[in-house]
Amino acid sequence: MADFMRPTEAFTCVDSKGVKRRFDPTMIVDLKHWAIKGREHLFEPARDADDVARAQATSFGPRNVEQATAAPGEKRSVRRPRKTDEDAGDKPAESDA
Rank of each mutant, 00 (worst) to 15 (best):
S77D: 07
P25V: 11
S59E: 00
D96R: 13
S59K: 01
D24H: 02
D3R: 03
A88Y: 04
F43C: 06
V19R: 13
H33P: 11
A57K: 05
D48I: 14
R79L: 03
L42E: 09
V78W: 03
D87A: 09
S95V: 12
A10K: 06
R22T: 08
M1I: 07
L42H: 11
E44C: 00
D24P: 02
A46H: 08
E74I: 13
A55G: 00
P92C: 01
H41P: 07
A71N: 12
I28G: 02
Q56T: 04
A46I: 09
D50W: 15
A35F: 09
E40I: 09
V29M: 00
K17V: 01
D90V: 10
G61P: 03
I36A: 00
R6E: 02
T12I: 15
A35S: 15
A49M: 06
K83M: 07
E74A: 15
K20R: 08
K83E: 01
P72N: 12
R47L: 07
V52D: 14
R39F: 05
D96H: 10
A35C: 15
F60Y: 10
D50G: 15
D24Q: 00
T8V: 06
D85C: 13
C13P: 08
P62T: 04
F23L: 05
T8Q: 02
A2V: 11
K32G: 00
E40V: 09
A2Q: 11
W34C: 08
T12M: 13
R47Q: 05
E44H: 03
P62M: 07
E44R: 04
V29Q: 01
R47C: 03
A2R: 10
R54F: 07
A57W: 05
G18L: 12
E40N: 09
E9T: 14
N64K: 02
T69R: 14
T26Q: 01
E94D: 06
T84K: 10
V19C: 09
I36H: 00
A55F: 01
K83Q: 08
V14E: 09
G38I: 13
E94H: 04
D3H: 03
R82Y: 13
R22G: 01
F4P: 01
M1F: 06
A49T: 06
A71P: 12
T12R: 14
H33M: 09
V29C: 02
Q67M: 09
R21W: 09
M27G: 03
R79N: 01
P45K: 09
K91L: 07
P72R: 12
F43H: 04
R47G: 02
R80N: 05
E94K: 04
G89H: 03
M1L: 08
F23N: 05
S77Y: 03
E86Y: 10
W34Q: 09
G89D: 05
V14M: 11
K17F: 04
L42A: 12
E9D: 14
E9R: 15
P25N: 11
M1C: 07
R76N: 12
P25S: 10
G18P: 12
R82M: 13
F11P: 04
D51I: 03
T69Q: 14
R39C: 04
D15V: 10
P62G: 06
I28E: 04
V78G: 07
S95R: 13
T12Q: 14
K20L: 11
A10M: 06
F4D: 00
A57T: 03
R39Y: 08
A49P: 04
L42M: 14
L42Q: 10
A93E: 12
M5N: 02
